[in-house]
């Protein structure tokens, strides 16, 4: 008896060790590209040319950053980290705010009020959840062109109001966690319907709102397709951060490898910072709420 038990424990132990080794290997493969990116962003361009692959950080990070930020001043290269950050932050923050507020509002309307079209409206939202963006993009851009909205940020920000997947998630959350009696109590106290939503519902929905805000922010920051479709004239002043990366990428006059790596680092830095602080929260909510846009 003792013997078989021992045998069993040993088997489990061996298995655990093998699994651990595989997990460590996968971790290394996953982190290597990002690590190399950050290491090369800190190295002297000459050093990168001599030894393109290195795992030891260099000391030229400040120099690379300075060169990257001052790029558009020295040549015809259309890259500016400031313009990219300004535009990307503006679009991302406004789109996220609108998306979260109106998704919560829509979900609230569906859950709290008892009206005839409530069920059909919800069914519709479920049905359109999976229609991919690329399929409608041609009609979208052409239509926006007719409305004279191409080369503006409106088509990048306003559509965020209608995000079926976020509404779906908010509705699920509200159904499970929101006591509807509280709305009636607020009515007795003389609160208006919209102010009940803003002052009572939103604070109570904070966990859902917070998690969704993170996912929507990341999705919008990473969006490269819609901006490159809508900003037809390619006005440099309107570039978002991913477009700045594209511009660096397609420029073969830029030989400074340190600057190239640095530009990529700058484009993903906000996302990485967010992830450093909120990774637990993000990973725990991927399965329930991490709906891709």
């Amino acid at each position: 008896m003792n013997n078989t038990n021992d045998n069993y424990t040993r088997k489990v132990m061996i298995k655990s060790i093998v699994i651990m080794a595989v997990l460590v290997l996968i971790t290394i493969i996953v982190l290597a590209p990002i690590y190399i990116l950050f290491v090369n962003a800190t190295r002297d361009p000459q050093a990168i040319t001599n030894h393109p692959l290195s795992f030891i950080p260099g000391t030229s990070f400040i120099r690379n950053i300075k060169e990257t930020i001052n790029l558009n001043k020295i040549g015809k290269i259309s890259y500016s980290a400031w313009i990219g950050y300004r535009n990307s932050f503006f679009i991302t923050v406004s789109a996220t705010a609108l998306c979260i507020f109106f998704s919560a509002l829509t979900a609230y309307g569906l859950v709290i009020y008892d009206f005839k079209l409530s069920t059909p409206a919800y069914t519709f939202i479920l049905a359109v959840m999976m229609v991919p963006v690329q399929v409608t993009s041609v009609g979208f851009v052409q239509f926006m062109g007719k409305l004279k909205l191409t080369d503006t940020y409106w088509p990048l920000i306003v559509p965020a109001i209608a995000a079926p997947a976020i509404v779906f998630y908010m509705r699920q959350y509200m159904k499970a966690n929101f006591p509807t009696e509280i709305v009636e109590a607020a009515r007795i106290d003389g609160s208006g319907e919209l102010s009940t939503f803003v002052r009572i519902a939103i604070p109570m929905l904070k966990p859902a709102v917070g998690v969704q805000a993170i996912f929507v922010f990341i999705a919008n920051w990473n969006n490269f397709y819609t901006p490159s479709m809508i900003l037809i004239s390619r006005e440099f002043k309107q570039y978002t951060m991913p477009m700045m990366v594209e511009s660096i990428l397609s420029n073969d006059k830029l030989s400074d490898q340190g600057v190239r790596y640095c530009a990529i680092v700058l484009s993903i830095l906000p996302i990485i910072v967010i992830y450093c602080f909120l990774s637990r929260l993000i990973v725990d909510n991927v399965a329930e709420g991490g709906v891709k846009e």
């Binding site: 971790t27 996953v30 990116l37 991913p242 484009s267 990973v283």
Partner: peptide, 19 residues
């Protein structure tokens, strides 16, 4: 491990292509 393995998913696809 979960946190590390999910990391690439949040990195901008355009930047991944560049990298």
């Amino acid at each position: 491990f979960k946190v590390v393995m999910y990391l690439p998913n949040i990195v901008t696809a355009a930047s991944v292509a560049a990298l």
